[in-house]
């Protein structure tokens, strides 16, 4: 079916961009599911059931990918045919230092839990995250996919750290 070949931005009729309007996406997904969820074809022929399952799954996949900043940027790179070996490391000495420091931080927090230190680092990393997204936007505007990819690794790292720290704090 044509629909399954469309990229997710085309599918939902949303402009390709780093930021996305979450409530607009929610609304679009709802519209599609009201029409194509398999329950709407519970009485249909086998073909209709199969197509509904495929379309509905595709829509949910699109929702998952476009709804998540990291997956969304990965996807934008993919539809622009930019691929790179995942195992390739990035040559950024500052980023390397950040990684080492973060690991040390986690180790020390595991020994001595300190909510204030966690909060302090959380706001620090959130700022880094925001800056990274801002530079990804700039690189995207100038179609510099190589640098988008470089910053994507940082984005993944910060997102993971924020989740870890929040988990640690709530424990």
């Amino acid at each position: 079916m044509d629909i399954l070949k469309k990229n997710f931005f085309e599918l939902f009729n949303i402009n390709i961009s780093i930021d996305i309007n979450k409530s607009e996406l929610d609304e679009k997904v709802k519209i599609f599911q009201t029409q194509f969820h398999p329950d709407k074809y519970a009485n249909g022929s086998d073909l209709e059931k199969r197509l509904a399952l495929q379309i509905s799954s595709h829509v949910n996949d699109g929702y998952k990918v476009l709804g998540d900043i990291v997956l969304r940027i990965e996807y934008i790179l993919k539809i622009n045919n930019f691929t790179k070996d995942e195992s390739k490391t990035i040559n950024d000495i500052n980023f390397l230092r950040e990684q080492i420091e973060y690991n040390e931080l986690v180790e020390s927090l595991e020994e001595n839990f300190d909510k204030d230190i966690i909060d302090e680092h959380l706001s620090k990393i959130r700022l880094l995250l925001k800056n990274t997204i801002d530079s990804i936007k700039l690189f995207f505007d100038s179609e510099d996919y190589e640098n988008m990819w470089q910053n994507l690794s940082k984005l993944r790292f910060y997102t993971k750290n924020i989740n870890e720290l929040i988990k640690m704090r709530n424990k």
Binding site: M1, I3, I31, Q35, F36, S45, L51
Partner: peptide
Amino acid sequence: EFYVERRMNSSIKSLIAGKGIDDIL
């Protein structure tokens, strides 16, 4: 079979053309 597929494609096209949720429900 082809008619069913054609119908689904046509309703998808009208969805993509951008209807609001109120038009569907």
